[in-house]
Computed example of a mutant assay.
Amino acid sequence: MGTDLKRELLRLLDEDEEFRYAVAGRIGILEILKRLDRLEEGQNRLWEEVRSLREGQEKLWEEVRSLREGQNKLWVEVKELKKAYQGLSKRVSAGFAELGSALGVTYEMHAAAYIQVLLEELGYPGAKVTRGWALKDGEVLEIDIFCEEPLVVGEVTTRLRDEMEMDREINKLMDRVEAVSSKYGKKPFLAILSVGVAPENLVERLREETAKHGIKLILGREIEEALSA
């Protein structure tokens, strides 16, 4: 075979794919070459997918970092809100305490004025209703409503919310009735429990319990109606 022919054949093998496959088929390696080509194509696609996965992973980590930063900012805001809420809660509690105290004094004064009018209507025009005190077992007990002649002992509360508070106020009043009875040697002419506000479902129960103990119950609405008349 001449040198020129060999060179031409080699050139064709390098440059002419169809010729190359024809020669490969003749010598039995065509199928192998085709499979190698397919493997190379598959490998290229695989590397493309790997690159895409890496890019996706990097984007995912970016999103995770952004979420963490957002979460950290959120926790900072939550802590600030908690601090603000705690401060507000303290101020509101203090405000309600001051308001409750102010309302208590006002209602107590109204209750005292109402009871003084009541005593005048009962035939005691000179009766003087004030605050008082008495001793029981060495303890000084303050009395919200007190009149020496006729002897009157009363307790005032701005609000009753349930039966537990009702029982506590009744027992508190009965302790003072007992202490005053011991001090003056006689039972009070009137034992009074004045309640500013109570739920409707508690009022009937309150009437029953005060009647059972010989206590005159005066509700806030009765005082309001009498003083505004």
Rank of each mutant, 00 (worst) to 15 (best):
M1V: 05
G2H: 05
T3M: 13
R7A: 10
E8I: 02
L10A: 00
E18K: 00
F19Q: 00
A22I: 01
V23W: 01
G25L: 02
G28T: 01
L30T: 01
R35F: 08
L36T: 09
E40C: 07
E41H: 08
G42P: 03
Q43A: 15
Q43G: 15
N44G: 08
L46F: 10
E48S: 05
E48T: 12
E49N: 13
E49F: 15
S52H: 15
L53A: 11
R54V: 13
G56R: 13
G56H: 07
Q57E: 12
E58M: 14
L60P: 11
R65L: 12
E69K: 14
Q71V: 11
K73A: 10
W75E: 09
V76Y: 13
V78K: 04
K79W: 09
K79P: 07
K82Q: 12
K82A: 12
K82G: 05
K83H: 12
G87H: 04
L88D: 09
K90L: 14
A94Q: 13
F96N: 15
F96K: 15
A97Y: 14
E98Y: 05
G100E: 14
S101M: 13
A102F: 04
L103V: 13
V105A: 14
T106Q: 12
E108G: 14
H110W: 12
H110T: 10
H110R: 15
H110P: 04
A112M: 06
A113H: 07
I115P: 05
L122D: 11
G123A: 01
Y124C: 02
P125S: 04
G126C: 11
K128E: 11
R131W: 12
G132Q: 08
A134S: 09
I145S: 06
E148M: 08
P150D: 03
V152W: 01
E155W: 03
V156W: 02
T157S: 12
T157L: 06
R161S: 06
R161I: 06
D167N: 14
E169Q: 14
E169T: 07
N171F: 09
L173G: 01
L173I: 03
M174P: 03
D175S: 11
R176M: 13
S181V: 07
K186M: 06
K186P: 06
F189D: 10
A191Y: 04
L193H: 02
L193E: 04
V195Q: 00
V195W: 00
V197C: 05
V197H: 05
V203H: 00
R205H: 04
R207V: 05
E208C: 09
E208S: 09
K212L: 10
H213K: 07
I215F: 07
R221G: 05
E222F: 00
E222W: 03
